[in-house]
C-alpha cells in the first residue's frame, strides 16, 4: 500500500487519496485479489509427454482423419472421441509476427518478445515465441519448432529460423 494512503488513513481515518490530475478523491480498495487458475490437462497429457522429448503432438480423429492442434479430445465432425496422438513434423513457414514491447506484468521478467504464427508442413498452424532476430525475417521464412526452458523453469515450444 502506498505511503500516502497509510498517512491519510492515520490522519483522516480512511484509505483515500486525491487523484493528481483531476483532484478527485479516490477510495483505495482494501481487498486485494491474486488470481492463479488450476487448469485440467488430464486429456492432453500425451502432448506434454511428447514435448519433454522434443516432439510436437497433435490429436487425430480415427474416423475422419481430422488433425487438431492445439490438441482436442473430441471430434465435432464425427461426434466421436476415438482419437489418436500423432507427431507433427516440426517445420513450417512463418506467416506473420509481432514484437511485444509493452508486456503484461506477469511477463515482466522478459525482454520484448517476438511472437509468430507459422503454418506447419503437416497443415496445422502454430503460434509461439520466435527465437530469431525479427529484423532478419523474410517473407516465406522457414521455421522449425524447438523446445526450450523458460525463465520460470518450465519447458515450452518456440519457433526458430532455419
Amino acid at each position: 500500500m502506498n505511503e500516502e494512503v497509510k498517512k491519510n488513513m492515520e490522519e483522516f481515518g480512511f484509505p483515500v487519496i486525491v487523484d493528481e490530475k483531476s483532484g478527485a478523491m479516490q477510495w483505495v480498495d482494501m481487498r486485494e485479489l491474486r488470481l492463479r487458475y488450476i487448469i485440467s490437462v488430464e486429456n492432453i497429457k500425451p502432448f506434454y509427454e511428447g514435448l519433454r522429448e522434443g516432439k510436437l503432438m497433435a490429436t487425430k480423429c480415427k474416423k475422419c482423419g481430422r488433425i487438431f492442434f492445439p490438441p482436442q479430445k473430441d471430434c465435432p465432425s464425427c461426434f466421436d472421441s476415438d482419437i489418436e496422438w500423432v507427431e507433427l513434423k516440426k517445420e513450417g513457414t512463418l506467416e506473420t509476427m509481432t514484437v511485444v514491447f509493452v508486456k503484461p506484468p506477469s511477463f515482466g521478467q522478459y525482454d520484448p518478445y517476438p511472437v509468430a504464427i507459422a503454418k506447419l508442413d503437416d497443415g496445422p498452424r502454430i503460434l509461439a515465441w520466435y527465437s530469431g532476430d525479427p529484423q532478419q525475417v523474410k517473407p516465406g521464412q522457414r521455421v522449425k519448432v524447438q523446445v526450450s526452458r523458460r525463465k520460470e523453469g518450465y519447458l515450452m515450444y518456440e519457433l526458430a529460423p532455419i
Binding site: 509476427m97 509481432t98 511485444v100 508486456k103 503484461p104 518478445y113 511472437v115 503460434l127 509461439a128
Partner: peptide
C-alpha cells in the same frame, strides 16, 4: 505461454 496482449493480437494482423 506467449503473453499476447490486445495490441499484439491485432499487430499479427
Amino acid at each position: 505461454n506467449f503473453g499476447l496482449t490486445f495490441p499484439a493480437y491485432y499487430a499479427l494482423h
